[in-house]
């Protein structure tokens, strides 16, 4: 069945948009893309079932990418909310001060004073709390409350595996690239599913990932900005290319194909 799908989110909408161009001939769906980059995505709201920009900056991107000043949700079958500022690294920023025992350097576990210890249970709750309070989760809830449209959340890409080659002093990135990366990413994934609902979250396929915590570097090379004219700089480890976008969209279509028509 052909579906009308609205893809809305921040700059990560770009990968899906360019990916769609690669695979649209294989599908009958109709996709509309709306991207509001950076923190401006937080200037979107939902009122009376319509997604609206609340600032001039957001309005500018709205008009530029969708050609309209608002999106009536019920005119679509599906809404994909992409990224919207919720990332593994943002959720993990708390590890700069609070860490569970298992994330401490074994050589200094018993004497360190840099981190406040929290239990695994509390750490998981903290990650879930970050997800719960995120703009992405709040917007997703507004969409599902104010319309009958089926809403899915497409996760922000995990950082590129080129992270391992980059010399980063960022302790969060070091965690992700290190031995604890897989368990942290798994914890984050579980939190997303627990908070948003397992049937509402779309992750990239496992084969696109490295150790479950990073995106395979081949999907970060040649990523384009939303305007489709410029590439992201080589140092950008967060944005993915059209091939990645196509993979994620296939995951979405698989989910929609195998799902009932429940919200």
């Amino acid at each position: 069945m052909a579906l009308k799908i609205c893809v809305v989110g921040n700059s990560h909408v770009g990968a899906l948009k360019f990916g769609w161009e690669n695979i649209r001939s294989s599908h009958r769906h109709e996709l509309t893309f709306l991207g509001v980059p950076g923190t401006s995505v937080r200037d979107l709201t939902v009122e009376h079932g319509i997604v609206l920009p609340t600032t001039n900056t957001a309005r500018k991107f709205f008009l530029k990418t969708s050609g309209s000043e608002g999106i009536a949700l019920d005119s679509y079958d599906v809404v994909l909310l992409v990224g919207a500022g919720l990332t593994l690294t943002s959720a993990l920023s708390l590890t700069n001060r609070w860490r569970p025992y298992g994330l401490l350097d074994e050589t200094i576990r018993d004497s360190q004073s840099q981190f406040n210890l929290v239990s695994d249970q509390l750490f998981a709750e903290l990650i879930s709390s970050r997800v719960r309070k995120s703009f992405a989760n709040r917007l997703l809830r507004k969409v599902t409350r104010q319309s009958a449209v089926r809403a899915l959340y497409v996760t922000t890409p995990l950082p590129s595996s080129e992270l391992r080659l980059a010399r980063s002093d960022d302790p969060v990135l070091s965690l992700i690239a290190g031995a604890h990366g897989p368990s942290i990413a798994s914890l984050y994934r579980n939190s997303l599913e627990r908070v948003m609902g397992k049937d509402k979250v779309i992750f990239p396929p496992a084969h696109a990932l490295v150790d479950g915590a990073m995106t395979d570097a081949r999907y970060s090379r040649g990523s384009l900005r939303l305007d489709g004219e410029r590439e992201h700089p080589d140092t950008d480890l967060n944005h993915m290319n059209a091939a990645y976008g196509a993979l994620v969209l296939e995951e979405v279509f698989n989910r929609l194909g195998s799902a009932t028509s429940s919200r």
Binding site: Y101, R109, D110, S113, N116, L117, S119, D120
Partner: peptide, 18 residues
């Protein structure tokens, strides 16, 4: 203070020391 306890004695000791 830890409703579900901690995973190992070493971890519990580290928490108490801190």
């Amino acid at each position: 203070v830890e409703p579900e306890g901690l995973g190992s004695l070493e971890e519990a000791v580290a928490h108490r020391r801190q």
